[in-house]
Simulated scan of single mutants.
Amino acid sequence: MASITKRGKSWQIRTSYLDIHGKRHFKSKAGFKTKKEAELYINELNKTASQSDDIGSTIFKEYFDDWAKTYRLPNITKLTAQWYTNTSKQIDKYFGIRDIKEITRRDYQSFINAYGKNRSKSSVSKLNTFIRSCVQNAVYEDIIPKDFTKNIIITFDKSKTRKVDYLNLDEIRRLTQYLISGLNRHFTSRYMILTALYTGARLGEIMALTWDDINFNFKTITISKAWDYTNGGGFKSTKNESSNRVIRVNSEFLNILKELKNNNSNIVFLNQYNTIPSSSAVNKTLKKSLKTLSIKRDGFHFHSLRHSHVAFLLANNVDIYAISKRLGHSNLGTTTKVYAYLIDEYKAKSDVVIDNSLDTLTQDDTYTERIDL
Rank of each mutant, 00 (worst) to 15 (best):
G8Q: 03
K9N: 14
W11E: 03
Y17N: 14
K29W: 08
A30G: 01
K33F: 04
A38C: 09
I59G: 05
F64N: 01
K69C: 01
L73S: 01
P74D: 15
N75C: 04
T77K: 12
F95P: 02
G96F: 06
T104D: 04
R105Q: 15
F111D: 02
N118P: 00
S120E: 09
S122D: 06
N128K: 05
Y140F: 15
K146L: 07
I153Q: 14
F156E: 01
D157R: 12
K158I: 07
K163F: 02
D165P: 00
Y166R: 10
L167H: 13
D170Q: 13
G182A: 02
I193M: 04
I206A: 03
I214Y: 06
I221C: 09
T222I: 06
S224T: 10
G233K: 00
N240L: 06
F253P: 05
I256Q: 13
E259Y: 07
F269Q: 03
N271L: 03
Q272T: 00
Q272N: 10
I276R: 08
S278V: 07
T285W: 00
S289R: 11
K291Q: 05
K291W: 02
L293K: 11
V310P: 07
Y321F: 15
L327K: 06
L332P: 03
L342Q: 09
I354M: 12
L361W: 13
